[in-house]
Each structure stands twice: as C-alpha cells, then as structure tokens.
C-alpha cells in the first residue's frame, strides 16, 4: 500500500467537495472490503481516500412515498439482511445477501460497495489491468486460466465478470440508483449503471470520479414474485459461480411480466430479454423454465475452461424461476 491522505467529511456535500476529477486523485471508502485489498496489492494507489461510511445521507432504509423502498448506499449487508420489510417484499435481494456468507463482509461491506466493487478477475488483481492485457496487447484470458470468466457479453475483449451480488436482483426489480455530484443528483436505471468498459482506464460502472452513489430505490413490489438462486461451491465464504435473479408477475396462472438477470456470467449483471420473452405468457413449469433457460444462454460463447458455466446459468435460472413461483 502506498501513502495517501485521508479525508473524513461530515456531510455528503463535504465528501463531494473532497473528490477530484480523476480516479488517481481520490477514492471513496465505505466498508473497505474491496478498496483496501486493491491498495494493499498495489493494483490501485489513490492519492486521497475519502471516507463516506458515517454519512447520514447514505444511511437508512425506508418505504418511499409511492410504496417502493429506499436503501442508503452505506447500509451494510448485515443491516439489509435484518430488515424484515425488505426481506418480505424483495426476497431476491435478501437471498442475494444471504449468499455473502462471511460475517466480516456482511458487517463491513455496504450495498453501494457491492455495486461499485471492482472485478475479482485474477489477471486484474495480479496487475494486468481491467482487460487482462498481455505484452502483445491482447487479453490473456481466452488462452489462459478462465474457468471463472465470462460466457456472455464479453465481446471477446472484457472477459471479467461483474462481482456484484446485488446487481442482478436490482436489475430484475427495475431499481434506480441515485448518484450525487457537486452539481446535483442524477438517477440511472440499475441496468444502465453497469457497463462494459471500452478500455482499461474506464470503469465498469457509470460513475465519475467526482460522484458518489447515494441510494438505491426499489419500485413497488406488490403483485410480483421474485427469487435469486446462487450456485456457489463452498458454504463458507466463496464467490458465486453463477447467480440468477428473477421478478415475475402472474396473471391467471401465466407470466404477464418478467425481468430476468444473471450474475457472474458477463462483465455486467446480464439481463436476458430472451429468457423474459420465452417465459412471458406461459405458466411456470419444468418445461417453460427449461425453454427460458435455453433462451438465456443461446448466445453464450464460453471460453476454453468455462463451458460448465453455461449449464450453471441454465440451472440457476430454472431454479430461480421455480422458486419465484413458490
């Protein structure tokens, strides 16, 4: 780790004023479960670290005026899991949190941090950059060790997978994220927040160096059924191999609306409109979830070591849909 200056602002306004126009200048610190690892491993060396964990504006969970739900970005995973109302109304989100089985991570890690954490790609973490570039300028991943890498949406360029546990569930719920900067607040759809970087200097989320993710707003969940299914090797702390989050509305026994997102299969949480279309208008049965799952991975292009993830994605989606049906 390299030396840095530390800012401990008392208000969101102060925090925003402490940030800078480049990632090298200043980094936001919340739970620190990711940032500190990156700094210790010399993958990232910001000159300034701005602590936002204590900011009141970023705390709290409550129902919104229109019946939705607001989660402060600095709410911890543990706090989220213990919120009864949220658990009842947004089971896909609670299930995603339950997949984070490390008490230390739950106690320290925040919801905003989960969304903004950097990929776990081992080439990135070993200093080869976000796009895992070798000396020939090409990605090391396709002919390297890629068992945990992307099977969808990599464009033969960005092979890391989004590490976010909550991303797929938020995409499935159609959540919105609020992002503050010194010049005001903007709102983006969860789905649009994640993106595939064109170069190693870009981030994999829609956040500028002078912005802070402040809250997550979930729309009304009434009338919908939802679930997350996670495939993880270990029961104790381990990264998911694949997750699937689904939100469906049923009418007369048939799916009238579906939002489906897969996790850990692509550089972003992977919304599958193909699967949504395949299940819409049908009852949730073994046969219909099989065709939805098949549709979800139709475009998959696995690498040399991760063909198994295509099957995992199908299985996770099928089990999530069946779980949502109840």
């Amino acid at each position: 780790m390299q030396a840095f200056t530390y800012a401990n602002p008392k208000t969101l306004k102060e925090a925003l004023a402490s940030l800078a126009g480049s990632w090298d200048e200043a980094a936001v610190l919340a739970g620190g479960t990711d940032l500190l690892s990156l700094m210790k491993q010399d993958v990232y060396a910001p000159k300034k670290v701005v602590n936002i964990k204590g900011l009141k504006e970023l705390k709290g969970m409550e129902r919104t005026g229109d019946g939705g739900f607001r989660i402060g970005a600095a709410v911890t995973i543990d706090e989220l899991m213990k919120n009864r109302l949220l658990g009842e109304e947004f089971p896909a989100l609670r299930a995603a949190a339950q997949g984070i089985t490390s008490p230390q991570m739950r106690n320290m890690g925040t919801v905003g941090g989960d969304l903004c954490q950097r990929p776990r790609c081992w080439y990135y973490r070993n200093g080869f950059g976000l796009l895992a570039t070798g000396t020939d300028g090409k990605s090391l991943v396709p002919s390297g060790e890629n068992e945990f890498h992307a099977i969808l949406g990599h464009g033969n360029k960005a092979f890391f997978v989004s590490a976010s546990s909550f991303g797929p569930a938020l995409v499935a719920y159609g959540a919105k994220l609020k992002i503050a900067s010194a010049s005001g607040v903007r709102e983006v759809n969860a789905e649009d927040f994640f993106r595939v970087p064109a170069s190693a200097t870009e981030r994999e989320v829609d956040l500028k160096p002078n912005e802070i993710l402040t809250e997550i707003v979930l729309p009304v969940s009434r009338g919908s059924q939802s679930a997350t299914y996670e495939v993880r090797q270990k029961e104790a702390f381990d990264w998911p191999l694949v997750t699937a989050s689904v939100m469906v509305k049923l009418s007369g026994g048939n799916v009238s609306e579906a939002r489906i997102a897969l996790g850990h299969v692509a550089p972003t949480p992977w919304r599958s409109k193909e699967a949504e279309q395949a299940i819409t208008g049908k009852a949730i049965t073994e046969a219909s979830v099989e065709s939805a799952a098949t549709a979800a991975v139709a475009a998959a292009s696995p690498l040399s070591q991760n063909a198994y993830k295509v099957q995992l994605a199908k299985v996770a989606l099928k089990r999530a849909l069946l779980a949502a049906k109840g």
Binding site: W122, N126, G144, E145, F148, K234, E235, A236, D238
Partner: peptide, 22 residues
Amino acid sequence: DQITGRMLNADMEFYKLAGAPD
C-alpha cells in the same frame, strides 16, 4: 498461468480452503 508464468490465486479468496460449514 502458462503465458505470464504467474500464480493467479496467491490469496485466500481463490486459493480455497474449507470453512466450518463445508
């Protein structure tokens, strides 16, 4: 990794060990 000659999981995140529930 044969290309880079590096150990990719020299950590306790992907060098996996059983936890109590495993």
